[in-house]
Structure formats: C-alpha cells, structure tokens
C-alpha cells in the first residue's frame, strides 16, 4: 500500500535561511498533528506539499505520486485549507464552492451534491446562498473545509486552520476532521502550535527551526523525553522554555 504522504530528505532554503532541513517522514491514513512554534517551517512544508514551492533537494510523494514529476496528478488527491483564508468574500458560499469544484474538473451535479452534503454535516447549509463576507470567522473556515473536501481528497492538509476561532468553533472543526479520518480513511496533516489540538493525534510530528525533531504518539514523545505532558515534551525536544515559545499554548 502506498503511503499517503512521504517525504525523503527534503531541504528548502530562502537565501541563507534554512526553512526545512533534511525533513523525512511517512504518513498513512489518520490524523497527524504537525506541531511547531511560529517560524518552525510548517507553512513552508505546506507550500511544498501543495506544489507552490519545490524543495531544493529531496522528494515528496502524495499517495505514491511524485509531486515534482506529476504535480497535476498529485494535486488531484489533496484538499487544503491554508492558514490565510482564501475565500472570495464577494461571492456566495455556493459560488465559491462551484468555482473550486470546476477548477478541479467536477461537474455541476457533483458539486451540488457534494457541497450540500458537506454543508449540511457542518450545519451551514442555510448559508449556501449568503455572501461569504457576511459569515462569521468560524463559518468561513467551515466553508473552506467543505471546499477542500469537495474533491474527495485522500490527503487533507490543514495549515493552522483554527487560528482566530473561538474555542467552540475550533473544537467542532477539529472533531470533524478526526471523524473524517476515521470514516473515510483519509490522511489529515493538521499544522498547529496549540498543544491540545495535537494530543489525540495518531502521531505528532515535532518541527522546530526547520528540523523534524520527533514523530510518534503523544505518549511516545512523553516517554522518550521523560515528561508527563505533550507541552513539556515539545519544550524539551526543541530545547525551548515556555517563555521562548509564547505561541505554544495549552488551553
């Protein structure tokens, strides 16, 4: 069976700054948390995984397809929610979804059926004909998640998707993605700097200053670092004190 996501020896620099330094990992289906403080290289990793950048060296495979060799084929298996919202606020929810679906080559009936199903599951079907600018931040994120799921991706990339959301919306989105991983056997890579979002993940990938420091369950990381919680494990792995990583929070 092909890995959902596979990175081998990936390097990426911006000038003299090493954004990613020899990063390798393999993910199957399930919920994976990519944990790192601000500037760890999470967004760069997502930009590489979506083909926006190419690595300086190393290889990336999505469901066994080499991203650099067959970008279009690889992208067809990815759904992504970027850290920065990417909705056309002047258009309605449905128009945004239709635009995205067609960009991915879906037919109108497919788009209507899938968007109605996902919007209903997330409880925002009644907002389908509302302009996105009228929606709350939480609902906009839900729309972005629906959009990412329209193409029935095998890999779901969520780049700090809960930033700016209230705790209830955050929890709803998180639980929804957990459920998706179980129901549809997809691989979700959830980038975050919020410890509690990573605690129940199948595996936690700890990224710091462009290096992948560890990969394992929260319990495995705690055991390896002889700590009793994930926050302390992260701080020990990254050699930071809490004051040096203010973005890391345990809520």
């Amino acid at each position: 069976m092909n890995n959902s996501v596979s990175l081998k020896g990936v390097h990426k620099s911006y000038g003299k700054v090493k954004a990613l330094d020899d990063v390798s990992f393999e993910l199957q289906h399930g919920f994976y948390a990519l944990l790192g403080s601000n500037g760890a290289g999470k967004s760069t990793l997502f930009q590489l995984l979506t083909g926006l950048f190419v690595p300086d060296s190393g290889s990336i495979e999505i469901t066994g397809v080499d991203l650099n060799q067959q970008l279009t084929k690889a992208l067809a298996n990815i759904g992504v929610v970027f850290q920065q919202s990417a909705l056309d606020l002047g258009l309605t929810v449905q128009a945004n979804l239709t635009f995205h679906g067609r960009l991915h080559g879906l037919s109108t009936p497919q788009i209507k059926e899938r968007s109605a199903t996902e919007l209903e599951r997330l409880g925002i079907l009644d907002s389908a004909n509302k302009a996105c600018k009228t929606l709350s931040g939480g609902n906009r994120r839900k729309v972005e998640l629906v959009r990412a799921l329209l193409t029935e991706p095998k890999v779901l990339l969520m780049d700090e998707a809960t930033v700016g959301l209230d705790p209830a919306s955050r929890d709803l989105l998180l639980r929804y993605v957990y459920d998706l991983c179980n129901e549809r056997k997809i691989c979700a890579l959830w980038a975050t700097h919020l410890i509690d979002e990573a605690e129940d993940a199948k595996q936690v990938l700890v990224l710091n200053k462009g290096k992948l420091l560890a990969q394992g369950t929260a319990q495995e990381l705690q055991k390896a670092t002889k700590t009793d919680n994930l926050l302390d494990a992260f701080l020990q792995l990254s050699g930071q004190k809490l004051a040096e990583a203010p973005s890391l929070q345990k809520i």
């Binding site: 979506t50 083909g51 279009t72 970027f82 920065q84 056309d88």
Partner: peptide
C-alpha cells in the same frame, strides 16, 4: 494578497 492565488495554483490543472 487575498490568498486566492494559492487556490488557483493548487488546482490539478497544468499551470
């Protein structure tokens, strides 16, 4: 600037 370009460029179509 609005992030919509990423959406376009990550569509599975030749750039």
């Amino acid at each position: 600037e609005m992030g919509l370009m990423r959406l376009l460029l990550t569509a599975p179509q030749p750039r």
